[in-house]
């Protein structure tokens, strides 16, 4: 078993005894060399972390899974472009965290939304920073997402057996753009209002389903009080939930299938020795 799985990381391994350990223990301990109470305490305190991890591991069986996911082998030539996916996920986490805190002050009522948004910017401590991170972070996330997608495409990493992961990624792209659309209305200033009017009417221009799609988005035939609460619910509950679930599936497949080598690397051809021939 221990030969098949990589060794425990350094911080989980028990520390080897120091050369001075024996002398110190004899100082504190009894004269016959048995360890004293202070030594026992020091020893158990040092192992506290490992004991907690061991307790959890015994009950969840998580360590083989985590070891497989975190210490998996990556191909030769893995480079900085491979971090774009993690960067996109980090942008999503940052959006989720700042969004949760913005929701503490924001009021999705058509007559109150603008005031509550400007209250966040102008009066709440660090409100400008948190709102700014959420606003600019949305752009960062979309830019990173497209870079990640471009990396996958250019490196040919969408090919068998990773097609499903590409499809999940495209769904994530659409959901992220939907986040951008629904979030744009929420400050409820002139720009967001008219941008949403235009965006909903763009949806209305789809043949056959367009008029119904627009009615669904607006929550009725006209822009109304329902529209902003509806966009708010989509923006902070439905779409982020879907995104989080799909990121989980995306990561599972990455861990399961592994990553691809860059296309400029060729498989190494080993010269066969005479004995092998």
């Amino acid at each position: 078993m221990s030969k098949l799985t990589p060794p425990l990381p350094k911080f989980l391994r028990p520390a080897p005894p120091r050369p001075s350990e024996k002398e110190r223990s004899s100082d504190n301990g009894e004269p016959n060399g048995k360890p004293g109470r202070a030594d026992k305490l020091r020893e158990s305190a040092g192992e506290g972390g490992a004991q907690v991890v061991g307790w959890l591991d015994e009950r969840t069986g998580a360590s083989p899974f985590l070891r497989g996911a975190l210490y998996r082998k990556v191909p030769k030539g893995t480079n900085w472009f491979y971090t774009l996916g993690s960067a996109t996920m980090f942008a999503f986490v940052s959006q989720a965290v700042t969004g949760v805190f913005l929701a503490m002050y924001y009021n999705p009522d058509a007559t109150r939304a603008y005031e509550s948004a400007s209250h966040i910017t102008n009066e709440v401590f660090l409100g400008e920073l948190v709102r700014g991170m959420h606003k600019w972070g949305s752009t960062v996330m979309i830019v990173l997402l497209f870079l990640h997608m471009a990396r996958t495409f250019v490196f040919g990493a969408y090919k068998y057996p990773r097609e499903l992961n590409w499809v999940i990624g495209v769904v994530l792209l659409v959901l992220t753009l939907a986040m951008g659309l629904t979030g744009y209305l929420l400050p409820f200033d002139q720009r967001s209002y008219w941008a949403t009017i235009v965006a909903v009417n763009l949806n209305a221009s789809a043949p056959l389903i367009g008029p119904f799609l627009a009615d669904f988005l607006r929550g009725g035939g006209e822009f109304s009080a329902t529209t902003i609460t509806r966009f708010y619910a989509l923006h902070m509950l439905l779409i982020p939930g879907l995104i989080a679930a799909l990121i989980g599936a995306h990561l599972y497949l990455v861990a399961k299938l592994g990553t691809t080598a860059p296309p400029w690397l060729r498989a190494e051809k080993k010269e066969l020795t005479k004995e092998e021939i």
Binding site: A110, T111, F188, Y193, E222, F223, S224, A225, I228
Partner: peptide, 8 residues
């Protein structure tokens, strides 16, 4: 729409 202030 009387319910949404200026937007209505």
């Amino acid at each position: 729409d009387p319910g949404v202030g200026e937007a209505g």
